[in-house]
Write a protein that binds this DNA or RNA. Structure first.
Lengths: 260, 260
DNA sequence: TGCGCCCTGTCATCAAGTTGTCATGCAGCT
DNA sequence: AGCTGCATGACAACTTGATGACAGGGCGCA
C-alpha cells in the first residue's frame, strides 16, 4: 500500500511540476463527488483524492447527492452502496437515465456481504466496484483508470507543420522523415510552440506552461533550450522553424513550410 | 482493429482468479446472442458482455431465437435451458442439425436442479454450460475460452512484427523462428507493448495494464522486467525491439523490422 | 516434508543523458 | 558607437535508466 502510494505520488508530483502534461492527465483537474455516509471513510477518501490533486465534493446522504448533482456534474462519482436517503443503486440508476450524466464514471463501494449484489450494480451501470475494506491505492488506481478511459486521447495525436512532425503518442519528432532526437524539455517546448503556430510566447509564459507554474528558473534558461531545440531540428542546414521576437519571446514560424 | 480482436489470450484460470484483469483486456469484437427470458439476468449478461466489447443481441423466447438466428449468425450463443416457446435444448439440437451453425459455440445456462441434465446438454452439443447462479467473471472466462477455441483464425492471437512472433494461445515467443524463453510477466509486457507498436507507455500505465490495478509495486520494477525482456529477446546480438523514451516510458519500436 | 528451480520485486551501483547557469561574443536598434 | 538583448559553448549538479545481486515465495518432484 505504501508503495503504491509512493508510485502514485511520484506520478502526481511529476505531473504537478509539469502542467504541460495536465492535458494528458485530465485526472488532476478532475472533480470527484464522494457519496459516503461513514464519516471516517469519507474523510479518508477525500484526503487521499485531494492529495492527488482532485477537487472533491463530499455528501453523506443519497438525497444530498441528488441535489449536488443537479448543481454541478463532477467528472467521477464514488458511491457507497448503502446510503441513508436514497440508495447508491438508485442514484446510479438515475444518473444513467439522465442524458447529461449517462456516461459519468461511477465507482461503487460495496461491503463484503453485499458483494453478490455487485452484479446488480454493474448491470445498473456502475463502471467499477470496490469491495470494502479496500486498499486506498487500488481505489486511486481505479479512479485514474476510469478517468483516463472517460476522457481519452484529447492531447494525443500528431502535430505536423511543413516537414516537421511531432508525434505525442509515440513521443517522436521527425524532420523530413528523419528522426530527430531531443531531451524531454525540448520536446515539450516544441510541442507547446507547434500547438499555436505563429503565436509569440514570452519567456515567462513558456516557463509557466512548459516548466510549470512552480518552477523557479531564470528566464535566460529558455534561451538555452530554444537553442538546443534549434540545434536538434536543424540537422545540417535546414530552415529554422523557430522565430525569435526581439524583446518579446519566441514563436513557431507559421510561414514555416509554406515558402522556401 | 484486427489487433484489438486478437486480444484476451490470457489463461482462463488467471482471468477467473482476477476479475479486474478482464477490464484490462478488451475482448474480441464478436457478436453474441443471449437467449434468456429472465429480464434481469438478460440485462446483466448483456451489460457485462458489452462492457467487454462484444456486440450483443437479446431475445427472450425460444422461437424468437430461431428467427434471430435465421437472420444473423452470431459468433456465440448463450442459451437458457428453460425457455418459453422452444426450449434451449431444442434450439441447440436444431443449431447442430443445420450446416451453417454446426460449429457455433453454445453455452447453456441451467438452474441447479437441472444440473443432472448436464450430460444430455453436452451430448446434444452444447459446448459448455454454467449453473445458475453463476459468477459473471467465470461466465466471461468461458465465453472467451470458447471463442478462442471456435475462431482460431481470429483468435489465434499471433502478433508478428519483423522477425518477432508472439503466440498468445501457445504462450510462445519466437525470434527469427527460434523459440525464446521468458517469464509470464515478460510475456504479458511484450504482449502489451506489441499491441500498440510505437506507442509510448509510462511505467504507471504499464503497471496498471500488465500488473493490474491492484498491484502495489514500485515503478522501477518495470525497468527490471523490460531489462529481462530485452535480454531474453536479444539472444546473441540482435536488434533491440524495445525503445526507451527517457522521461516518458517504453515502447515497442514501430520501425522494428522495417529497416536495418 | 524437504530440496531445488524459477519467477519476482527491491536495491545498490554504475553509466549516460539532461538541465540550469554563466561567461563570452555577436547582432540589432537608436 | 553604445546599449541591450540574444546565441552559444562550457560545465557541474542532477536525473534517469541499465544491470547484477539477492532474498522471498511458489511449485513441482522426490
Amino acid at each position: 500500500m505504501a508503495k503504491e502510494m509512493q508510485r502514485e505520488m511520484q506520478d502526481v508530483n511529476e505531473i504537478r511540476s509539469n502542467p504541460a502534461r495536465l492535458a494528458a492527465y485530465p485526472a488532476l483537474a478532475a472533480r470527484i463527488l464522494v457519496v459516503e455516509d461513514e464519516a471516517a471513510l469519507s474523510m479518508l477518501l477525500s484526503y487521499n483524492l485531494e492529495a492527488e490533486g482532485f477537487t472533491v465534493d463530499r455528501v453523506e446522504r443519497g438525497d444530498e447527492a441528488e441535489i449536488k448533482l443537479s448543481e454541478t456534474i463532477p467528472d467521477l462519482v464514488i458511491l457507497d452502496w448503502m446510503l441513508p436517503g436514497v440508495s447508491g443503486l438508485e442514484i446510479c440508476r438515475r444518473l444513467r437515465a439522465r442524458e447529461t450524466t449517462r456516461t459519468l464514471p461511477v465507482i461503487m463501494l460495496t461491503a463484503r456481504g453485499e458483494e453478490s449484489e455487485r452484479v446488480r450494480g454493474l448491470s445498473i451501470g456502475a463502471d467499477d466496484y470496490v469491495v470494502k475494506p479496500f486498499s486506498v491505492p487500488e481505489l486511486m488506481a481505479r479512479v485514474h483508470a476510469l478517468l483516463r478511459r472517460a476522457r481519452p486521447e484529447r492531447a494525443r495525436g500528431v502535430l505536423s507543420v511543413g516537414d516537421l512532425d511531432l508525434d505525442r503518442q509515440n513521443w517522436r519528432v521527425r524532420r523530413a522523415g528523419r528522426e530527430v532526437h531531443m531531451g524531454p524539455t525540448e520536446f515539450r517546448l516544441l510541442d507547446h510552440l507547434m500547438g499555436k503556430p505563429g503565436r509569440v510566447f514570452s519567456r515567462a509564459q513558456l516557463l509557466d506552461s512548459v516548466w510549470g507554474l512552480s518552477a523557479e528558473i531564470d528566464e535566460r534558461t529558455v534561451d538555452v533550450h530554444v537553442g538546443r531545440l534549434r540545434k536538434a531540428l536543424s540537422q545540417g542546414a535546414e530552415k529554422d522553424p523557430i522565430r525569435t521576437v526581439r524583446g518579446a519571446g519566441y514563436a513557431f514560424d507559421e510561414t514555416f513550410g509554406r515558402d522556401g
